[in-house]
């Protein structure tokens, strides 16, 4: 892809970067990123990836915008209440950057459709807020050899880990979903809206670094922050031989849905 004059201006701050340059921006323009969940994490991720000129952005979400989303899901505006989130997100991205093709899927990812959805993309962003879907995304990406960014937020804190084939997966660290009800969801515990912005933006940066092959990804490291006490740190996390999906004797060889209560299906 050869950039035109308007693109050279639009992406000038990327082109100046020695690690990105013209070649890196062209990779971004050719890149395909799938965002699962157009909520608290997916909103900032989608906005920054769109601004960066990611050529194809897929967004999957089955929900419609409601008033309680607006405190942190910054891609949706008050007049969008009642509108499917993927349509609301697509409209904003198309206004922001005509270089981006948006594939809007008003759907939930489940074991039977996730492999097909991720197959068309280079990098996947987990912007969900329920454990069954987080594990499903991990397993699907591991089994299909796809890179993805895990992200989770609650109250004033967030965590993120990037998976690329051969490195530590989410299940290596957190073997299986916690028992139902043992960990509060965001709708029960609350979350500071800006935390969603911080974490989703890190995920967007990881996607851009992956597309351009720049720097070190958050692989084999879990980044955790707590803004209440302003602690920010990375924790080394190793691949587990006992990992049920990528260990020496994996017990998960095909995807399965884990039962979850309907109220947990809402995205962040």
């Amino acid at each position: 892809m050869i950039m035109n004059e308007q693109q050279i201006e639009r992406y000038s701050r990327h082109i100046i970067l020695s690690n990105v340059g013209v070649e890196g921006q062209e990779k971004i323009l050719d890149g395909k990123v799938l965002i699962i969940g157009a909520g608290g994490l997916g909103s900032p991720a989608a906005l920054y990836l769109a601004a960066a000129g990611v050529g194809t952005i897929g967004i999957i979400d089955g929900d419609v915008v409601d008033r309680t989303n607006l405190q942190r899901q910054v891609i949706h505006f008050t007049p969008d209440i009642g509108k499917p989130k993927v349509i609301s997100a697509k409209e904003k991205i198309e206004l922001m950057n005509p270089d981006v093709k948006v594939n809007a899927y008003q759907d939930l990812v489940v074991a039977s459709n996730i492999s097909e959805y991720i197959s068309e993309y280079d990098f996947i962003i987990d912007g969900t807020d329920n454990f069954p879907t987080k594990f499903l995304i991990n397993d699907a990406c591991v089994l299909n050899g796809k890179a993805f960014s895990h992200g989770g937020i609650i109250r004033f804190s967030g965590q993120t880990l990037t998976y690329t084939p051969g490195n530590t997966c989410y299940r290596c660290v957190f073997h299986e979903p916690p028992p139902k009800g043992s960990v509060p969801s965001c709708s029960q515990a609350g979350v500071l809206g800006a935390i969603a912005g911080m974490l989703g933006t890190i995920q967007a940066a990881e996607a851009l670094k992956y597309l351009t092959g720049t720097g070190e990804l958050l692989t084999n490291r879990l980044y955790y922050f707590d803004t209440l006490k302003n602690n920010y740190r990375t924790i080394d996390v190793k691949r587990s031989d006992d990992c049920p999906v990528c260990g020496k004797h994996p017990t998960i060889s095909e995807l399965q849905d884990i039962e979850m209560p309907a109220c947990d299906l809402k995205q962040l």
């Binding site: 950039m3 050279i8 201006e9 000038s12 701050r13 082109i15 100046i16 340059g21 013209v22 070649e23």
Partner: peptide
């Protein structure tokens, strides 16, 4: 600025 260096970089590429 910064298009001076941007254009230089684009040409060099």
């Amino acid at each position: 600025c910064p298009m001076t260096f941007v254009k230089t970089k684009v040409e060099l590429s």
